[in-house]
Amino acid sequence: MIPTRTLRLASKLSEIRRLAQAVDEFAARNGVSEKAAHHVNLAADELITNAIEYGGAEPGRRIVVTLRREPDSLVMEITHRGVAFDPTLEVAPPDLTADVEDRAVGGLGVHFAKTFLDGLSYVRRRGANHLILTKKL
Rank of each mutant, 00 (worst) to 15 (best):
T4I: 09
T6I: 08
T6Y: 07
T6V: 05
L7K: 01
R8V: 03
A10F: 08
A10Q: 15
S11D: 10
S11E: 08
K12Y: 13
S14L: 13
S14H: 07
R17E: 09
R17Q: 03
R18K: 13
L19G: 03
L19Y: 02
A20Q: 14
A20H: 12
Q21V: 08
V23F: 01
E25R: 12
E25A: 12
E25Q: 06
A27P: 01
A27G: 02
R29Q: 13
N30D: 10
G31V: 05
K35S: 04
K35R: 14
A37W: 02
H38G: 04
H39L: 08
L42Q: 15
A43Q: 05
A43S: 07
A43C: 03
D45L: 13
E46L: 11
L47N: 01
I48D: 08
T49N: 14
T49M: 14
T49C: 14
I52P: 02
I52N: 08
E53I: 10
G55I: 02
E58S: 05
E58F: 05
E58A: 09
P59K: 14
G60R: 14
R61E: 13
R61H: 09
I63F: 12
V64K: 12
V64F: 03
V65H: 00
V65R: 01
T66D: 04
L67T: 01
R68G: 01
R69T: 02
E70L: 11
P71M: 12
S73W: 00
L74Y: 00
V75K: 00
M76K: 00
M76Y: 00
M76A: 12
E77A: 07
I78A: 03
I78Y: 01
I78E: 02
R81S: 08
G82N: 09
G82P: 01
G82T: 07
G82I: 06
V83N: 09
V83P: 00
A84N: 11
D86T: 04
T88P: 02
T88C: 08
T88L: 11
T88Q: 05
A92D: 11
P93N: 13
P93V: 14
P94Y: 12
D95Q: 10
L96P: 02
L96Y: 14
T97L: 15
A98H: 04
A98C: 06
V100F: 15
E101M: 10
D102L: 09
R103F: 02
R103K: 13
A104R: 15
V105G: 12
L108Q: 15
L108D: 14
H111D: 13
H111A: 15
F112M: 15
A113K: 12
A113M: 15
K114W: 10
F116Q: 09
F116I: 07
L117I: 07
L117P: 03
G119S: 03
G119R: 00
G119A: 01
L120M: 11
L120D: 07
L120Q: 06
R125Q: 15
R126Q: 09
R126C: 02
G127T: 05
A128T: 09
H130W: 13
L131R: 01
L133R: 00
T134P: 01
T134V: 14
K136W: 10
K136Q: 11
K136F: 07
